[in-house]
Design a protein around this nucleic acid. Structure first.
Length: 679
RNA sequence: AGCGCGAUAGGAUAGCCAGGAUAUUCCGCCGGGCUCAUAACCCGGAGAUCGGUGAUUCAAAUUCACCUCGCGCUACCA
């Protein structure tokens, strides 16, 4: 990277944090991608050679777990979302020069090559750690494959994090009563050898790097705690069979941790772009190995990965470091965080289904607040912004000016642009360019919006409609100025609103793509003839907002999860559960071996049941209806993965199913043996 | 708990790094103008002592210290 102002003569790469191929995208996600898209378009406006790349993040435990839940292979599952994302980005006019995925050949090769280099230069070592294991299936249970009790707060927690309770990170071996989330089997911890990346080797380097790094202040400061403190080495392998296998001469069944190959996709995707268009148009090696301008646009939750692990990996394997990290804040919904599990979100598909132009949301996301701050979305705010700024100000100015010009002069009047207007446009160009160099997309977009505002005041105060009779020469001059402003406004806003500005560009009689021209074109003469313009933006009326708010309200109060939505329906007022909820129950045939009364209790029996793999002790409230002797040898249905309970001082490890108030025991029709799974 | 980011009129938001006199802009509100334009546009007005306390300074929204609240990160969450 360089510290010269942009544009430089080096190629630039703009990347966005990889979407994890695990479910639908909402407008909060879009903030990162719209910002990346607007940034790369803006850089090109400055004349910077730029590649805008990204890809889907395919690997990792959550994909594997969710694929398993849907009965699909991880690859099939992740590819489904990968294809879906491509459509989503297309719909939002987010145009990557290359959009790959982490499971493709380029990334697999490049990732292994980079890791091998780190290994060869002795930055990687082996260390034995505790790994949760399913002893019955003889399977490792990494990260989220394990569930248990949080040792800190007692809530149900995943193996890696107490996600429902105190949010604390959990080390392997910490979670109590660990169980496999797949089989429900109790997990045990085994000592396994894993690969560790010695980040401490790079402490000095990183301390220099973080001082050079440009971008948002959160990205520049947050990693200092680690970099200036002590750097822990990073475990970069996992025991699952979904991922990129560890590059090694010895035989290994380790795969790389998803965060290793995810970031390498930035390089891989650039390489694919180069390979496609040829290295004269864009040379990926020049960008990544000879100090190109690499700019990462990410969500502020993944700063450490990009400002600590990633530069260390790059530096250790001979690649250039990023110039800037732009970490976006989150998008809140009516002041509260999005919650995908509660369906408290505006999904991009929902936005599309309302037939809104993507430009409206793009403008909203870019201009509503500073990039690194959290912003709020509500349909009312959205409509305010569209109606006030886009329809009333920008759209109105463009429309009234171009309509006037077309009607009276058939296009731009044959006059020279006035000094005043030329200077004002020049000022906007400088503002745009400075904003990009300060990594403020908001200000870069506002340079165009403010110019339109100036235009409205300019036309209003000069009243060319009055001048037409008394001073037609001056009227023509004023309108010529306005058309020039229109042209400049379109160019300045084209990174934020690519569709609308392209349409206006054509209506203005310009040829080709507005995205090919640079800022200086703003001062070139507009065409002398063009067709009548159309209205660039349509207002959103109150009824529509109410409708959208109601829809959102309904969506939030309904209990469904977005991914499960299609499986959930209301029927006879009864709540339906998705099939996978049923799948979570481990129901098995059991054979009652012994049954004893529990002294002091009128209702309870202590029962030992053979469930095939083991004998379970279960406490059942059926003493009133059965004598212990009658029960022995009976086949029953047992929930085996119910959490343990202590009833009347006796441990109960499961539940025997019975019907109605008389505890009519459920049994099998034929003679399935104990342990048979019920489905 | 530690660290990071943030808190500015009724709502939203700029300025903070490089301290300077009436704190920006938008929505809403009040008054006026215009009629080319999508009841859009333009001009004027009211409304914030800039989360709290203290310090530095001729001067603090801006620097420093402490505190409160919100959000995030804390390495095995992608």
């Amino acid at each position: 990277m360089s510290t010269n102002p942009l544009p430089t003569d080096k190629p630039a790469v703009v990347t966005c944090g990889l979407p994890y191929a695990n479910g639908n995208l909402h407008i909060g996600h879009m903030r990162t991608y719209v910002s990346g898209d607007a940034l790369s378009r803006s850089l090109r406006k400055l004349g910077q050679k730029t590649a805008f790349v990204c890809g889907s993040d395919m690997h990792g435990t959550p994909v594997a777990v969710n694929a398993w839940k849907e009965g699909k292979s991880p690859r099939e599952f992740a590819l489904f979302w990968h294809e879906k994302y491509k459509q989503t980005f297309l719909g939002m006019s987010i145009e990557f020069d290359n959009y790959g995925h982490t499971d493709d050949e380029t990334n697999t090769m490049l990732t292994r090559e980079i890791v091998r280099k780190l290994d060869d230069s002795n930055h990687i070592y082996d260390k034995k750690i505790l790994v949760a294991w399913d002893p019955v299936e003889d399977q490792p249970l990494p990260d989220r494959y394990v569930e248990g009790t949080c040792p800190h707060c007692g809530a149900t927690a995943r193996g890696d994090e107490c996600d429902d309770g105190c949010q604390r990170h959990l080390e392997p071996g910490e979670v109590l009563n660990p169980k496999s989330i797949i089989t429900g089997n109790e997990a045990e911890y085994r000592n396994k050898s894993h690969k560790f990346f010695r980040i401490s080797d790079f402490q000095n380097y990183l301390q220099g790097f973080i001082n050079r790094l440009e971008g948002t202040t959160n990205a520049k400061n947050q990693p200092r705690e680690w970099i200036d403190g002590s750097l822990h080495d990073w475990c970069i392998t996992r025991n699952i069979d979904w991922g990129i296998s560890y590059p090694s001469d010895e035989k290994t069944d380790l795969v790389l941790y998803v965060w290793v190959d995810a970031v390498v996709e930035y390089i891989s995707s650039t390489k694919q772009y180069s390979d496609r268009v040829g290295s004269t148009l864009f040379d990926w090696e020049e960008a990544w190995k000879q100090d190109g301008e690499i700019i990462h646009v990410i969500g502020r939750d993944i700063i450490q990965h990009h400002a600590v692990f990633w530069p260390a990996m790059l530096h250790g394997s001979g690649y250039s470091e990023p110039r800037a990290i732009m970490a976006t804040g989150f998008v809140n919904l009516n002041k509260k965080a999005f919650s995908t599990s509660r369906n408290r979100a505006i999904w991009v598909d929902d936005y599309f289904s309302e037939d809104f132009d993507p430009d409206l949301l793009r403008y909203y996301l870019v201009t509503v607040g500073s990039l690194q701050d959290d912003i709020d979305f509500s349909w009312a705010n959205f409509a305010d912004k569209v109606n006030g700024e886009l329809v009333g100000n920008i759209g109105n100015f463009l429309y009234r000016s171009m309509l006037f010009a077309q009607r009276e002069y058939g296009g731009a009047p044959e006059k020279q642009v006035s000094k005043e207007v030329q200077d004002r446009i020049q000022e906007a160009i400088v503002e745009f360019s400075n904003s990009i160099n300060n990594y403020s997309l908001r200000n870069s977009a506002l340079s165009g919006a403010k110019l339109a505002q100036y235009g409205n005041a300019y036309i209003q105060q000069n009243e060319p409609w009055k001048l037409l009779k008394n001073n037609p020469d001056l009227a023509a001059q004023i309108i010529r100025d306005c058309v020039q402003i229109c042209k400049a406004v379109c160019i300045l806003l084209s990174p934020t609103m690519p569709n609308t500005t392209q349409k206006l560009w054509e209506e203005m009689g310009e040829f080709g793509s507005i995205h090919q021209v640079t800022l200086s074109e703003s001062l070139e003469s507009p065409p002398l003839s063009f067709e009548p313009p159309s209205e660039p933006f349509m207002p959103i009326d109150d009824k529509k907002i109410k409708k959208l708010d109601n829809k959102l309200e309904q969506q939030i109060t309904s209990p469904s999860n977005p991914e499960k939505q299609s499986l959930v329906s209301q029927d006879n007022g009864q709540k339906r559960i998705p099939f996978e909820h049923f799948q979570k129950l481990d129901l098995r045939v059991g054979k009652i071996l012994t049954a004893k009364e529990i002294s002091g209790s009128e209702k309870l029996l202590k029962i030992e049941v053979d469930i095939g793999s083991e004998t379970r002790q279960i406490v059942a409230g059926i003493r009133k209806f059965y004598s212990p002797d009658d029960l022995i040898g009976k086949s029953v249905v047992v929930i085996t993965n119910l959490e343990k309970a202590t009833i009347f001082g006796t441990e109960s490890n499961g539940m025997i199913l019975a019907a109605g108030d008389t505890a009519d025991l459920l049994t099998t029709y034929a003679n399935s043996p104990p342990g048979e799974k019920i489905r």
